[in-house]
Design a protein around this nucleic acid. Structure first.
Lengths: 361, 361
DNA sequence: CTGAAAGCGCTTACAG
DNA sequence: CTGAAAGCGCTTACAG
């Protein structure tokens, strides 16, 4: 035995043998003591070997790593976090019950972070300040490395003040602190994409059927639509529902005058109502009237007859970006504050085929 | 000064003063040392006072608690977890990308646990065994107190083996280990609810339009339907899509013979297709044909014209139950293994009004 | 090149 | 009734 006869040794070796014989491990996980004992080094050296820190002979480092691998050693994140002040966890706060926006964002965040060993707490707070507070406190107790606040409107804040928290915060798809880091989609650019698609499809008279004017995104999309089209703009405001799509078609077709040959809708639900309304009137989509939606909400867009051409806000990418930023901030890297607009893209299905239609494809 | 002049004191008091002057707290959070120093007790006593453990004079206990409240002391969950072996975190593993099932389940879990200080890691694994492994390892590293595995099919397992893990596991809406604890909805009872509603509405010839026979839930619902109705059963299998609903209506109406006066659909998407198909043929719902769906997927059920009467699997309740169970197990309480079926309920909207229709309400 | 010691922020026997 | 000591499983100066 070349091991120094120190107190920890026998215990460690005991564990080691137990671990080697029964890899299930009932009496707790294998700790760094086991690895150190088995590799015949001190736990300091074991720690440094595994973290690629400190200086030691390459042989020693390799030997320790090999042993660690063999016994399936995984460092206890709680113990590590206590010292390093990094817990490798972050929190995602959301008030989006349906998950329409949260889920893609969450997928992106997770995608970006899981490779860095970071896990994500999901906290659904549903606009309840009390509950929000409880969740935030629970996360701070657990020393999260950062919090991503996500919502469903750009012009509303979550019902809890996240400024002045001892951890970095990134806002995604919700109104953030003025000096915070905020991520959002570029709705104007998205609206231009939609308008461009309709124009390319040969539409001359394009109407915009959208949601309540109180939504910032509604105003932005409408503004972009107004400047993007050639003819006189017409914006019809209503609620975010299929029924409003029907209703709008009824209004447009039951009044006198020229009918539109292109309709840009504020979201996919409205678009679906519009398409259904048109079909019921015997108006063909996209031959007589081309329609473009907004959101690319698969369940709505793909089931519409014909399937919707629509603007995708690339929420998953937005989530990845949020993950990247919160990681950088939690590692102490400087991140520029302000609002970052991420581009939308157009998903072409049947309801508007853009230039293809004219090309006769 | 009545404080013993021990080493920790000055540091603690220093922190205490900093904390009291600037409640923001930049130089780390306030620790139990601060509380102890300010309350003039040892940290052991402080700890016991705050945890309502040990014995001491009520005055001392109160004094410590008061100080803790004043300085906003919150125990570091990492440190506490290291000792008590409870991290007050659990993991939710899911392969349900859309969140159709996961979100309500998650809401229920969270609802049940947040009051106990437990936070939930959400891990979306999308049927990728590799990713599942990475997520599970990351959670074990963080010493989760338990894992809830949730899916979207009762007859499929998640792509990772969760048996033999050092933490308890509860399966929700997915196939679990044979000796595990599994939660699911009672689909047969749900189907009986649907059949009963149609029968009560006066339907004499009820057809079942549903999804692929390969799904266990499809078979269970179909079996329950067969025994629940009076007349000869007829089950049409297809895919889980609106298009199949249309198609089924076409098949039923374009062949000779008697038409159904009631249709029980395997999910809300199919039901929506059926209702749309009927309307397009001039068949009135519910007057000529009553329709009942399954899932109560708000976005589909409420937007259908007329809105769908449908079976709700009460996934939120299922989530709460899963939370309750995992909490019990993580606290070492015995929980009976096996499959637990939770009852469904019927949400009555317009497409089938059950007995009301006959009552003339 | 390697290890003993101190310590992260708590809890829990144990001693007085 | 209260506190000193040991320790959870690690990391990190520091000393040799």
């Amino acid at each position: 035995m070349t091991c120094p006869k120190r107190k920890g040794f026998f215990i460690a070796n005991e564990q080691g043998e137990e671990k080697l014989s029964a890899t299930g491990g009932k009496r707790g996980r294998v700790t760094i003591h086991t690895v150190a004992a088995l590799a015949n080094v001190s736990i300091s050296t074991a720690s440094k070997a595994l973290n690629d820190s400190g200086r030691m002979s390459p042989e020693t480092r390799e030997r320790v790593k090999k042993v660690a691998l063999e016994v399936g050693f995984r460092p206890n994140a709680l113990a590590r976090g206590l010292i390093t002040k990094r817990s490798f966890t972050i929190g995602l706060l959301t008030n989006d019950t349906y998950g329409r926006f949260t889920l893609p964002v969450m997928a992106g965040i997770s995608e970006e972070l899981v490779g860095h060993g970071v896990s994500v707490f999901l906290c659904a707070i549903e606009d309840d300040p009390e509950r929000a507070r409880v969740h935030v406190d629970a996360m701070l107790d657990k020393s999260v490395d950062g919090i991503i606040a996500s919502g469903k409107r750009l012009d509303r804040q979550l019902p809890v003040d996240l400024s002045g928290l001892p951890v970095p915060v990134v806002y995604a798809f919700t109104k953030g602190a003025t000096d915070g880091v905020t991520l959002r989609s570029d709705d104007e650019q998205g609206a231009r994409l939609a308008a461009r698609c309709l124009i390319d499809a040969g539409c001359r008279r394009i109407v915009h059927v959208t949601g309540p004017k109180t939504f910032q995104s509604v105003r932005e999309r409408a503004d972009a639509y107004r400047t993007a089209i050639d003819g006189p703009p017409e914006v019809l405001h209503g609620i975010w529902a299929e029924a409003w799509g029907h209703e709008a078609v009824a209004q447009l077709w039951e009044r006198g005058g020229e009918k539109p040959d292109g309709i840009f809708c504020g979201n996919d639900q409205i678009a679906r109502g519009v398409v259904d309304g048109l079909r019921e009137r015997g108006v063909r989509v996209p031959e007589d009237v081309a329609v473009v939606g907004f959101d690319n909400w698969e369940i709505v867009a793909a089931q519409t007859r014909p399937p919707l051409t629509t603007v995708d806000m690339n929420l998953r990418t937005l989530g990845r970006e949020a993950g990247r930023l919160i990681l950088a901030m939690s590692e102490g890297r400087e991140v520029q504050s302000g609002i970052r607009k991420l581009p939308c893209s157009l998903v072409v299905r049947q309801s508007c085929r853009g230039a293809e239609a004219l090309a006769g494809t």
